[in-house]
Amino acid sequence: MNATNMLFLDILLVIALLSLAWATLTATDARRSVILFIAFGLVLTLAWARLLAPDVALAEAAIGAGLSGALLLAAVQHHPRRALSSERQNTGKLANEKQNDSNPADLKSSVAIRWTLTLFCIALAFVLIWALLQALSSETSDTLAQSVSANLANSGVSNPVTAVLLNFRAYDTLLELAVLLTAVLGIFALSEQRTGYLPAGPVFNGLVSWLVPALILMAGYLLWVGAHAPGGAFQAGATLAAAGVILRLAGKRNIGLPVSKSYLNIILVIGSGLFLLVGLTMLALGRPFLDYPPAMAGYLILLIETAAMISIAATLILAFLGGRPRNREDRSC
């Protein structure tokens, strides 16, 4: 590939990213912000691919642009007035306090605050750029990356990113699944699910009956291929969640989640639970926590990833529902 052509592409991508980010952040209308944010995520996917980070590109396309976009769009849809407009409606101020807001002294102080913060951000940008240039120009010895490639043969997988996520730094991923579980518990505590959508017309229904099986198949493929190529539990879980989102938009009642509350709880916990169980089994076998025997590592990683995919998908679908499911098996406490 011609180096000059690539530089041209890089400059175009960077300009697109910067202007989309600026437009997202300065849009006065929340809906416009959300749509620009989705576009920003899609262009970003190209940048990740260009920087040889295909795993990150897949996750960005499925989660960063796709599911975050769906969550934000649903939030805009259900709150057309409050908490969204750029005016100060969401601070809960009374009408007479609002008048105070517009008196000259307050306005001046808020302009002063704006400029102070802007200058602080500009200064921070310079510090960051300086630090980045230092980091990029110094010759690092790279001991971590070297030990990853030295031990890759013993990790049970040949994709180095999957090896880091599920073997060398499995701790981080276990805690990440715990973060997802905490988030879904918070969502359950705060709210019930939003009201559903109307049943879709025949054309959309036809599309759904093609898309959902294709997405399930693709999730399975991403899960399997993650061992030796870009892919893995997170990308697969997000793809599976996308199938749930589509079913939800088509007005289906049970969007792939179990009706019974106890089964739902099991699939939410199975990702972190099974991961923890494998770690504890290693302890019982006299090995360090989450240190798999090399001969078994490949199977254990696939097992953990399958369970993680199910939990991730269920968590993301419930996040899209916006709360604990309604109209299910009644269980009052």
Binding site: A53, D55, V56, A59, E60, I63, G64, L67, S68, L71, L72, V161, L165, D172, T173, E176, V179, L180, T182, A183, V184, G186, I187, G232, F234, I312, T315, L316, A319
Partner: peptide, 14 residues
């Protein structure tokens, strides 16, 4: 970064 993307989406949902 992969971890970060997933944590970001769950924080956003919450």
């Amino acid at each position: 970064v992969l971890t970060g993307i997933v944590v970001a989406v769950s924080a956003t949902a919450l």
